[in-house]
């Protein structure tokens, strides 16, 4: 299936709207999001097609990422400890290239969270109760539209508005567009050299 190309995130990210898709289960690891054999590549370009490859094969078309109704979904709703396991950025890259632009869940593995942030994909936390009711309402109303508002830290579907959570640091980075850190980091050249001057292991262990 040829998926519509939606632009990748850029700049300040304050609101995200889109069709939702539910994936239930705790501890969904990065090996499942993108199995290791697909890491044999020198670019991320083709990963979108391969997201959840093994799980999808096993479910023969019944996997949420294969259901026709979900094909233009962009907001993924998951459960606990999503993205645990390896540091492969291929996992968020695969999700992003499939079309995902935000993830809502009870909790996320740390490296996965950071990798998503570096791509401009917010991982938003909500209580177990909210996740449950959200997943239920989407399941009974597939493809339901969700609106994420990072300014007021809320999400709303067609009927209800919920309060959600995100640590202030990453939230600020997304809202200000500073999630793409490279330019900020290289601009601090003199501060970097200063730290290097004071590190014992770079200075014959004088301290």
């Amino acid at each position: 299936m040829i998926r519509p190309i939606t632009p990748f995130p850029t700049g300040a990210i304050k609101q995200i709207e889109g069709k939702s898709i539910v994936l239930t289960g705790n501890d969904i690891d990065t090996d499942r999001i993108i199995p290791a054999r697909f890491l044999k590549c020198v670019s991320f370009d083709l990963l979108g097609e391969q997201v959840f490859a093994d799980d999808r094969k096993e479910l023969k078309g019944e996997h949420p990422f294969d259901l026709p109704i979900n094909q233009d979904a962009s907001i993924l709703v998951v459960n606990e400890n999503f993205g645990c396991g390896s540091s492969r950025e291929h996992a968020p890259q695969a999700l992003m290239r499939w079309g995902i632009r935000a993830i809502i869940g009870k909790s996320f593995a740390e490296i996965f969270f950071g990798n998503c942030l570096a791509l401009g994909i917010p991982c938003i936390k909500a209580s177990e109760k909210i996740i449950e009711s959200l997943q239920q309402s989407i399941t009974s109303n597939p493809g339901d539209f969700i609106r994420i508002n990072l300014e007021e830290l809320s999400i709303s579907d067609s009927s209800i508005k919920y309060n959600v959570l995100m640590d202030p640091g990453p939230l600020e980075m997304l809202k200000s567009g500073a999630w793409d850190a490279t330019s900020q980091l290289i601009n601090k050249r003199s501060e970097i050299l200063e730290v290097m001057k004071n590190l014992p292991y770079l200075n014959n262990f004088k301290y």
Binding site: E89, I111, P170, M173, T182, L185, I192
Partner: peptide, 19 residues
């Protein structure tokens, strides 16, 4: 461990944005 975007950042600046 870090992701590939952060590998890029370390190469470019020998630093990372991290909490």
């Amino acid at each position: 461990g870090i992701g590939t975007s952060q590998v890029r950042d370390v190469l470019a600046s020998q630093t990372l944005a991290i909490n």
